[in-house]
Design a protein around this nucleic acid. Structure first.
Lengths: 285, 285
DNA sequence: TGTGCTGTGGAACGTTTATTCCATTTACGA
DNA sequence: TCGTAAATGGAATAAACGTTCCACAGCACA
């Protein structure tokens, strides 16, 4: 950090803002050695990990040696890891508006009362309320039961149509990334019944439905139960037709705004279940 | 909007998010010794300095000794300056502390919690933070532009794959209920290109994509642009390949937990656009 | 004016950190 | 198959860091 004798040397200057650095990394990555590209990809995926972390910590999470981080930084023309880290930090400095700015903007929203501004406020508020509510009311023991049931399943069938479809489709995406075998029962081309035809007692079904309960979701769930599969359900009331079918059911009440219910709480709960199932399986193995 | 019930608590828990910490500092400042109030005021005015700086550096700029910083932190109930600094850093981070970190932190304070409970809290916090962030940063004028463009379209094509698919599928559901003609470009059976083949300059495309940007979404958007359709995009950075293609693009940065990003903010924004488009059309008619 | 206590500055300490260096492995061309 | 150069892992090192400790100053009260 002291000897900067040839700072303006062969490569001239090096990016000081994140935008240019990102471009540089993307450009250089292909021609870099294996471990260095590994660092490059980790850096682009987890920029704030680099901004705050220590060399040792980052290295461990990226699966390399600390010295590799220094080599990577120097390959890009920086003096060392700390030098590179400064650029990642500058990115966070510009991005977050200060408290005063936020307050000013809030006031602005309140005063001009633009129609879209009010809508965003409303939907944001609904999401925040739903999530807070769900967090307060959730029963960890019950969730644990649901996780146990799902973790023991060979294949997890995901049933959720209409407005519950975003939930199941995101779970399918997440389960794919986590290596959990799942089938998204999407009912496309009326194949719902065929998709669940091969379900066995070793499988489980995860069903999501809210008022007015999609009859197809209920029918699929009943069919899965008839085949002996375990059932986990997320629904919004004791009177839901899913409740009596399920081995474990979780209640989520989403706040609504302008007639559309937030999905934020259900989404959070769905992801909790998904990651917990992956965790439980990893433990077992 | 949050529970700061035991903010002034004895040796219970101490704020771990910046909003609560700010409230605590403001509340305690009047009763603190001279140098400590000096630190308090500096901390609130220069939160970034605290997040990134070293104890020595911050102390110098605040005009106190490093040891005073430690005393200040301890007066607030933290273990030391580093402990306090973590909270300032969490404000800038779009990643909520992982399950493992949280568990370790609880153990340090001699507490214990259920695994799934921690997961749910993490996902809830990611959702809450994303939504709050989006609400604070959103530019109503820009949203208005997006709404105008979409409201003028004959048919709205919705493009979003992988983890953006929940967004577009929910929009398709909502638009169906609101009588807005839309086509969900789902790429099933590789028909994405065919689905957008008939797009005209009177139509619009709404595209959602986050890092790592699904190449198919980008290709579909480019094709729609080539056909002369207006483009509205939601994406997460200026470097997104969608940004240069779009007539209007909105930035959303979702907090992530355990490697999965919340979709709550994007969902709220998507619903805002959808309902606003319906509203604008109703006005016009 | 004396006494005790809180507040403060600054040095010392032990720990953690980024970095450097070197032995070993890997990849590649002859 | 060998020989050379690049790449990598891991220990060693020196600097920087947060924290602790202690002596002294300021102040209130007797």
């Amino acid at each position: 950090m002291t000897d900067i004798s040839d700072a303006g040397g062969e490569h001239g200057t090096v990016p000081r803002d994140f935008a240019a650095l990102r471009a540089l990394i993307i450009g250089r990555a292909p021609e870099l050695p294996r471990r260095l590209t590994q660092v490059a990809s980790y850096a682009l995926d987890n920029p704030d990990e680099i901004a705050f972390g220590t060399a040792a910590g980052v290295a461990q999470r990226a699966g390399v040696q600390p010295s590799t981080l220094v080599r990577f930084s120097q390959a890009l023309g920086y003096q060392g890891f700390s030098d590179l880290q400064d650029v990642f930090r500058s990115r966070l400095r510009d991005r977050v508006p200060s408290y005063d700015e936020r307050l000013a903007q809030l006031r602005e929203h309140g005063l001009d009362a633009s129609k879209t501004g009010l809508l965003l406020e409303g939907f944001s508020e609904a999401a925040a309320r739903s999530v807070a509510d769900c967090r307060a009311k959730a029963d960890p023991a019950l969730i644990e039961q649901a996780v146990d049931l799902l973790a023991g399943a060979e294949t997890i069938y995901l049933a959720g149509l209409r407005r519950s479809f975003p939930i199941t489709s995101y779970m399918a995406y997440a389960m794919g990334k986590l290596g959990i075998r799942s089938i998204l029962v999407d009912g496309i081309a009326g194949l719902g019944a065929e998709q669940t035809g091969f379900i066995t007692p070793r499988d489980a079904m995860f069903a999501v439905s809210f008022t007015p309960y999609a009859s197809e979701t209920v029918a699929l769930t009943a069919a899965a139960k008839a085949h002996g599969a375990g059932i986990v359900a997320i629904t919004d009331s004791l009177f839901s037709p899913l409740a009596p079918l399920a081995d474990v059911w979780l209640e989520v009440v989403e706040a609504n705004f302008e007639g559309f219910r937030s999905m934020a709480a259900t989404m959070a709960l769905a992801m909790t279940l998904t990651v917990a199932v992956a965790g439980k399986r990893a433990e077992g193995a």
